[in-house]
Design a protein around this nucleic acid. Structure first.
Lengths: 192, 192
DNA sequence: AAAAACTATTGACATTTGTCAATAAATGGA
DNA sequence: TCCATTTATTGACAAATGTCAATAGTTTTT
């Protein structure tokens, strides 16, 4: 049940067996069917969520009713709503399972405690936060720099492991182009 | 010389007078003329930089020679190259003063030490990193969601204090549209 | 197995945005 | 003050992308 999680953590930091046991004593498991929500707009998010299997998406719904995907979270990635978590305000977006998924949840208060008690965990969180910032900056750079086609190719390069598990129109949403444009891009590039 | 910096820090955390003195003992001041560089592509960045007065920009130059602005940093903001700092690799972008500016520099090794010694400083850095992530996410949302005009209006809303200190074509670059398009947007919206 | 829901493709066309070029206006230095 | 540089505007046109609508294919559910 925690196999993936342990493997993931041992990859990322120096944890002892008792660290694992202790950390896991605060974890709870949530199984999600396809299309089931982990978080819905209007809820307050108070957890940290590690995806041990499956694939989720976070998306906003704009005033015209269109969805805009902010994040895909596959196995060994974290998801949640940082804004809601930090500020305590109600969430503006939804997190939904694209595939049946298993998620490990930590209450934020527990996790803060764990970070204070286990320096290796604290270091690890700092490190992935930093990596997260770099990834966000790269995404912004792609957004302001690339054409629709280049954005798509860049997406494939950045997310090779999950690109074939995501419906095309969701990739279009993530990179900020229309699904029709993406369809045409693909039929052009595969021709070549 | 450190007046702004002290005011800024006291706003953001619980620091004692001796904390200030101690922190500042590791600081160095760098004055930049307009158009002078704080960092150039190819350098390795090893500092943290707090802008006490003035305004800087960080930008990439793409393969076609076009500049793409990733960040504006005005007084009471931080700048630098996180990627280069963390990984030790050579920087891919430039940081240049748009206005004559004064910057407070900390060597990364010193700053890490300070964070370990002063919990309030460490907390404060975590907090602004979190806020930074939220800001980056908002920028991505704007990028994938808004039209050129909406991107511009959104920029004005997000950066009211600096928008009139930045040449238009740099705003265009930051939001990822051509300078001509931005000029037309402005002549349209001011007509209304 | 059939129906429903979701996903992808395609055409026709509209709209947005970019490109190139010329010019004007503003700014900064010598 | 004058010259050079930077910045902004505008027109004409091209290219990229979006929109709407129809259809087909695929997957999921009952």
């Amino acid at each position: 049940m925690f196999d993936n999680f342990r493997k993931y953590l041992s990859d990322k930091g120096e944890f002892s067996i008792s660290d694992f046991d202790y950390i896991e004593s605060f974890a709870s498991i949530k199984k999600l069917r396809k299309k089931q929500y982990l978080l819905q707009e209007g809820d307050v998010w108070k957890h940290l969520a590690f995806v041990s299997t499956g694939l989720l998406r976070s998306y906003y719904v704009d005033t015209k009713g269109y969805e805009h995907i902010m994040q895909f979270a596959s196995e060994n990635h974290w998801t949640g709503d940082r804004e809601s978590l930090i500020t305590g305000i109600t969430s503006k977006f939804n997190i939904e399972a694209i595939e049946a998924s298993e998620v490990i949840l930590f209450k934020n208060v527990d996790f803060i405690k764990l970070r204070n008690e286990i320096p290796a965990l604290n270091d690890f969180v700092s490190r992935i936060t930093n990596k997260n910032v770099l990834a966000l900056e790269e995404r912004i750079y792609a957004n302001i720099t690339l054409s629709a086609e280049e954005k798509y190719l860049n997406f494939l390069k950045q997310h090779p492991h999950i690109s074939n598990r995501i419906p095309q129109h969701m990739i279009a949403s993530y990179i900020g182009i229309s699904p029709e444009t993406l369809s045409r891009i693909r039929s052009n590039t595969t021709k070549k």
